[in-house]
Design a protein around this nucleic acid. Structure first.
Length: 295
DNA sequence: TTCCAGGGGTAGA
DNA sequence: TCTACCCATGGA
């Protein structure tokens, strides 16, 4: 029997706008159910229980159903609460963003549609892996590679096809050739293995990274092998810093068609265009990509 | 076959 | 700092 509870959300929160803030909802262990408008995921608790969580919109905020429990201990409920808050970035206050954007015509929809909140994974480690898997490949390949990585994670006791995302220790403990064959991520496999070993060895503290300011988080991500300006800019945006522009092929295509008459501009042109939005530039750029994709 | 996708590392200038 | 080239993978 499932049990559920509601997490209060800020007034600017919109569940589906957050879920669809980018393609993360398509990456395992996330799974969107269109008929029920629910986001399901599989999550491993600190005590190594593999649980299925189902998130949905609720009048009070977000309803969280734990499908494998008829009740939760206070400790487990607090931990689940924290993970869901993190995934939906419920602690972001976008009021200043909306207020700043009122000075620009053409962006009224951001506030009226309660856009700007971005879905992330249960852990920074998982987000780093997934960002790495977006580099230099199309989206279908990213989805496939993320699915294969997730299948290396711990399986649910009663649903063997349900896997939580693997921990760095689980990836690091694998033989590299076996990992590469299982994931089929090409040259990215070496970067994935490096990251897992670095985190597993305790050489970097990803919990501490989440307390860093924008510049230092950007530099920390860029210090990892396989992570450049795009990857670092994407991670900083997902973790609440918007003063960087993560330029990739989608950004260049969007800029050409939305702001430059169909003509491709240089990366410097793109940065110059978004500089007017100050500390919000990265979020405005991302919203432009989402708007372009929706056209 | 060739190109390229939600890029990054490296060598050489 | 900038450019050219290379890097596995898989779909178009």
């Amino acid at each position: 029997m499932p049990t559920s509870f509601v997490i209060a959300a800020p007034p600017q929160f919109d569940f589906e706008q957050t879920v669809f803030s980018h393609g993360w909802y398509m990456l395992a262990p996330f799974e969107w159910n269109d008929a029920s408008a629910t986001l399901c995921t599989v999550w491993q608790s600190p005590t190594r229980d593999v649980l299925r969580l189902r998130l949905s919109a609720d009048e009070g905020g977000v309803r969280v159903a734990t499908l494998d429990r008829d009740q939760l201990t206070p400790d487990l409920r607090e931990t689940v609460d924290g993970v869901v808050r993190k995934m939906l970035n419920l602690d972001w206050d976008l009021g200043d963003f909306y207020a700043a954007m009122r000075a620009y015509s053409g962006y009224e929809w951001m506030e009226s549609e309660r856009r700007g909140r971005i879905l992330v994974s249960a852990s920074l480690w998982e987000d780093l892996v997934k960002v790495l898997l977006t580099t230099n490949c199309n989206w279908a390949q990213t989805v496939a590679m993320a699915g294969r990585v997730c299948r290396l994670g711990p399986a649910h006791a009663d649903y063997p096809d349900c896997h939580a995302f693997p921990t760095p220790q689980q990836i690091a403990s694998l033989d590299f050739d076996a990992l590469a064959a299982a994931v089929r991520a090409g040259y990215r496999s070496a970067y994935l293995y490096d990251l897992a070993q670095t985190v597993a060895a305790g050489s970097i503290d990803l919990h501490a990274w989440q307390q860093l300011d924008s510049d230092n988080l950007f530099l920390a991500v860029k210090s990892l092998r396989g992570f450049g300006d795009y990857a670092a800019g994407t991670i900083t945006r997902m973790y609440g810093h918007f003063d960087k522009i993560a330029i990739d092929s989608a950004c260049r295509e969007m800029y050409a068609n939305l702001h430059n008459g169909g003509v491709r501009g240089g990366d410097g042109d793109i940065k110059a265009h978004y500089a007017r939005y100050g500390k919000w530039r990265g979020l405005v750029m991302w919203m432009d990509i989402m708007r372009r994709n929706a056209e």
